[in-house]
Amino acid sequence: MSKPEFTYVTYIETTPEKLWQALTDGDFTERYWFAHRAASDWNVGSNYQFTLDGEKRLEGKVLISDPPRKLAYSWNGCSEEVRRERTSRVTFDLEPRGKVVKLTMTHDDLDEAGVTFRGIAEGWPMVLASLKSFLENGQILDIPRPVRAHEAVRA
């Protein structure tokens, strides 16, 4: 049995450089990623983390960093309920297509019956819809932060 994976594709009117910045710069992620702030130097092997109100919610290592084309990192949720689950992996592929960028997000190596898998399947569409609005309109979507930690892709 292969491990479950979740893939999401969206097309965003932006440049690969701006999309890369939106995925990696804490000032940007804070705007559209439900107040989660990314921090890392995004070099391969470096640690990264996402914090919410100063509290660490998500951490891992940078696995691939090829700006502005491909970014991959390992994914460990910091909440009590997901702490024991296996480390999963997130990969972003950015492909310019005329005036848009095709963004493919693949989240794999997930625990089959895990809380993380259920959470990210709910969370990624919210985060990536918000990202698309942010880059195209400069406005984020007014979606309330999900009540449970894992439901906003903060595992």
Binding site: Y11, E13, G98, A129, E136
Partner: peptide
């Protein structure tokens, strides 16, 4: 679907589509 729904979202939010 990802192409069509990306286009629909942009059209409703910004008034223009993003894919030719």
């Amino acid at each position: 679907w990802p192409r069509i729904l990306s286009n629909l979202k942009s059209l409703l939010e910004t008034g223009t589509v993003v894919l030719p």
